[in-house]
Design a protein around this nucleic acid. Structure first.
Lengths: 334, 334
DNA sequence: TTGAAAGCGTTACCAC
DNA sequence: GTGGTAACGCTTTCAA
């Protein structure tokens, strides 16, 4: 087992100090060009490999930005992740991804793992965290961004939108088009905080409009997707006829409901309206296409990148709060 | 700006040596239980966060396993990633994710970035790589796993299935059910290697069965998804009537085609069969549900975890080749 | 059961 | 333009 080639070895071979090798390999112009060239060549020929870990350790700069997602298997979060990844790459930063699988108790452990890698910033999806997580993050002393939400009591910077307002847009639209008997299809209570906020927003908006109580349909623990929406409606059976609108926590759930309802022979939107959330691809391609809210997943990523850029340049010393908003998108299911 | 809490700080607070703290936090039984407990509590209350970088530096083990994916925004790859992440967490390993966005020329750069972090293993999705990438990976000297494919000339271990065989299952089925005029809907040539393999497999299987030449429909550069399938059919217009089966590169593309075809008023499968690939959720929930091939994304992840476990235990010194197979799943679109 | 010393490979800082 | 010294936070090793 051959031992690793270090800067010292290269330095010895060339006849300079390790310090000069370090500088030369970083293209420091204070090293003379001939020396630099000789060092580069020698390093190459000796099979020298730069040790990022040692550098990260010495400089206390990891080159990482940590990000948590409730789930990787969500097209919107994946889109935000992609935008973050591409944007931060330009700044020489690598994303370190942690997924909590929607389990609140896991977030603390996850954040701890990520912080242990000494990231230069921490991006959290959502604005609801355990007290332990909040303490951990606050004392970590690096820039924090919460995204996909507009928390009342943010930990640092915020880039998101109001889930409550977004959901109210949906209910307002349904009321305007004459719907009154609403059912909400989403995850079990407590599992998914953004889902819970949306649920409460529907209940509140319905009250505001003087509608009868909203029926809450439990599609199972988060993450809920197409099959859960479908199963929820199948379980309900013909009773679905009691409602004139199904308000779903997301587009995939809405599509599952749509599929189940169509199988029953009901007409959408004539017999029943269905709405989604998130402007997923399925909303556009479904037949009929689904009424939803566009939350601009990619744009959130871009905004976070821009914000972090400013933070690293010391151009943003006070916590920023960026509301990216969201837009109602009427489809053919309402 | 407060400076970081280290083991030394904790040690001082408790009145022991840093060494004892180090042992205690790793649950070393040689530290007495009362001491351990006190150290744990003090560490917690002081907001101590373990420094994995320092540990990685000292032990020369990064605790990372690097993995490349063509795209994060793909439910199957996301599922494999999740299985990998969960499985490796038990071994104290963290995943370092890199996404090539289906661009071959980006893979080399990506692999270089990942290797600089000194991962303990490298997992590549797919079996097609540039020569530069192959050289890079070979000389890195760590365990390599190629997954989602069965390459002829593997770089190390392999966990995958034959895309060609899988696609042949589809064509065989279509022929058996009387279809002869096939069109293939997939990404542009050259962009996505797995897609290209599937395309060639369809052409070859059609020849084998004596069918007329397969029409190749270009749905755009990879990644192709629902909207691309839909656009391809919309672009084709009524000419779609020339075919009696649309063989799609993936389930999302198949759903896009299904949606477009239904809008035209054609009946599926009576007028036209449609097949997908990958056993995505949409295949099951679509109406009618889509004929596809189940490739067991999660199982691939489990197998890779098991394989790496054996490799780390020195139980697998020769390159392993695990064919996880795949199963034909008949839906209602054929 | 606990502690002291040394060192992992790099770079900041200061000297020359 | 180049080099010497020290240190980043942890764990291996040996000693008590």
């Amino acid at each position: 087992m051959s031992t690793r080639v270090t800067m010292r070895d290269v330095a010895q071979a060339v006849g300079v100090s390790p310090m000069t090798v370090s500088r030369a390999l970083r293209d420091d112009p204070t090293v003379s060009e001939p020396t630099r060239e000789k060092i580069r060549q020698t390093a190459q020929s000796m099979g020298y490999v730069y040790d990022t870990t040692a550098r990260a350790f010495r400089t206390q700069k990891s080159g990482f930005v940590a990000v948590t997602l409730p789930s990787v298997n969500n097209a919107n979060f994946a889109e935000t992740f992609r935008a973050l990844s591409n944007g931060l790459e330009a700044a020489g930063l690598q994303l370190l991804l942690g997924s909590s699988n929607y389990r609140v108790e896991k977030e603390e452990q996850l954040v701890r793992q990520l912080l242990a890698r000494n990231p230069e910033a921490l991006i959290l999806t959502g604005g609801h965290h355990s007290q332990a997580t909040r303490d951990l993050v606050r004392s970590a002393g690096m820039p924090i961004v919460e995204m996909w939400d507009l928390p009342d009591d943010p930990l640092g910077h915020v880039v998101g939108f109001s889930n409550a307002n977004a959901m109210a847009l949906i209910v307002d639209h349904l009321v305007q088009t004459g719907r009154r008997k609403l059912a909400f299809v989403g995850a079990s209570k407590g599992a998914d905080m953004r889902g819970a906020v949306r649920r409460e927003a529907v209940i509140e908006a319905a009250q505001r409009h003087g509608l009868p109580p909203v029926k809450l349909m439990d599609a199972g623990p988060a993450p809920v997707s197409m099959r859960h929406g479908r199963a929820a409606i199948d379980h309900l059976g013909r009773d679905v006829g009691q409602f004139d609108a199904l308000v779903c926590v997301s587009d995939p759930v809405a599509f599952g409901c749509l599929s189940a309802v169509q199988r029953m022979g009901l007409r959408v939107p004539d017999d029943l309206a269905i709405t989604g959330f998130g402007h997923f691809e399925i909303a556009k391609v479904a037949n009929p296409c689904i009424t939803t809210v566009n939350v601009q997943a990619e744009h959130i990523g871009h905004e976070v990148v821009a914000l972090l850029g400013a933070v690293f340049d010391n151009a943003a010393d006070t916590p920023q709060r960026i509301d990216v908003g969201c837009t109602f998108v009427r489809g053919e299911t309402s």
